[in-house]
Write a protein that binds this DNA or RNA. Structure first.
Length: 362
DNA sequence: TAAGAGCACGTGTTTACATCA
DNA sequence: AGTGATGTAAACACGTGCTCT
């Protein structure tokens, strides 16, 4: 489904945007606004896919199945004409909030780069992860698996009724004081990822099995209703930062984030799902509001034109047929679909209209 | 080429929790 | 301080599309 809509001073109203004419789209945007709907990918998806493509260029070592899927998604999406970006200028805060592609030095998210492994070996640096102390009853099969694998935290099955974690983010979220950037924190994440790689081969399948419906729910496991855990501000902020980088995660990224935040991979996955849903909902609201305004504008314009038409008709009936005043009509140029103003000179001697003289120039 | 499994994701719903009057 | 209404977000269930075998 494609939809193109154009308002403003653009000389080419209501024609489907030419997929290959970026400059024209830009021109239209400059003049007024343009919008298009196509496929299901929003700008963030496209941005992410572009990033992933660039990542693939940089990192040729990541050949897991999911990455293949991403590659195929990217390639398949680029084969047909790309879905048009929904660009609701001038007020589309959600889209405007989409971060521009970072500079090349920061663009990719090398979760598992070889350099990283080399760096770990050279620096002999211990893996730095968040020191998270789960206080609520979050123990399940996955947690046990992760704790066994990571050895970072001890199982805590005491259901204290606390709804959230007590976390010590001093290792990373000292950033506000120490000035560590998100990319610096990302680096910590990468280090954790490398460590995680050692065990994820054995834990991934088990965790996935338990996290995707095949596993026991909390209720099944301990006979209590599941305790919904509120993520801390720090956890949410970190996830938000990650989401700004990538709106979707591959399994390794998910694992790394989960490890870093001491969450279950399922939690990270769910968070990203919900986050995408929220983004889409927001965007839908913005689009809806904007289309409503468009509708109002067009209704008003239609009303005005109808009125004008009525006046012209009234004028026509009141004027003699042989009036010398040239009639003005609107015709559409079949070649470029532009609306052109043509004038015909009506005379008493020539009932047939003369060849119209068009003011439209190609 | 068809069929089935596995997976990721979107979407709608449920529900725990926080906030406010 | 206690309580109900309401909003938010985590978690879940289900369907769909894609890939691989």
């Amino acid at each position: 489904m494609e939809l193109a809509l154009s308002l403003g001073d653009t000389p080419k109203p209501f024609s489907l945007l030419d997929h290959h004419s970026r400059s024209q789209q830009q021109k239209m945007k400059d003049l007024g606004f343009c919008m298009g709907l196509g496929g299901s990918k929003n700008l963030e998806d496209l941005h992410f896919m572009n990033t992933m493509r660039e990542k693939d260029d940089d990192d040729d070592d990541d050949d897991d199945a999911h990455q293949k899927t991403e590659d195929k998604k990217s390639s398949s999406s680029s084969d047909p004409p790309p879905p048009l970006q929904l660009d609701l200028l001038p007020f589309s805060p959600v889209l405007r909030s989409v971060p521009p592609p970072p500079p090349p030095s920061q663009r990719s998210f090398p979760w598992l780069s070889k350099n990283l492994i080399a760096e770990m070996g050279s620096q002999n640096k211990p893996v730095q992860v968040l020191d998270v102390k789960p206080m609520a009853g979050v123990s399940d099969h996955q947690d046990n698996m992760e704790e066994t694998a990571g050895g970072e935290s001890s199982p805590n099955n005491s259901n204290s009724g606390t709804s959230s974690f007590q976390m010590d983010f001093s290792s990373i979220f000292k950033s506000s004081n120490s000035g560590r950037s998100f990319h610096s924190r990302k680096r910590d994440l990468e280090l954790a990822t490398v460590n995680l790689e050692l065990v994820e081969a054995t834990t991934e399948s088990d965790q996935r099995a338990s996290s995707r419906g095949g596993g026991m729910s909390d209720e099944d496991e301990n006979g209590l209703t599941r305790k919904k855990l509120r993520l801390t501000k720090e956890q949410s902020a970190f996830l938000e930062d990650s989401f700004k980088e990538h709106s979707t995660l591959n399994p390794k990224q998910k694992q790394a984030l989960a490890k870093q935040l001491n969450l279950r991979p399922r939690q990270v996955e769910v968070w990203f799902q919900n986050r995408r849903a929220r983004t889409k909902l927001k965007q839908t609201e913005v689009d809806c509001e904007y289309l409503k305004r468009c509708c109002e504008t067009l209704t008003e314009e239609n009303r005005r034109l109808q009125k004008e038409l009525q006046e012209l008709r009234a004028l026509k009936t009141s004027q003699p047929f042989y009036m010398q005043r040239p009639a003005t009509t609107l015709t559409m140029c079949p070649s470029c679909e532009r609306v052109a103003t043509t004038t015909t000179t009506a005379t008493t001697t020539t009932p047939r209209p003369q060849q119209p003289t068009s003011s439209h120039r190609h």
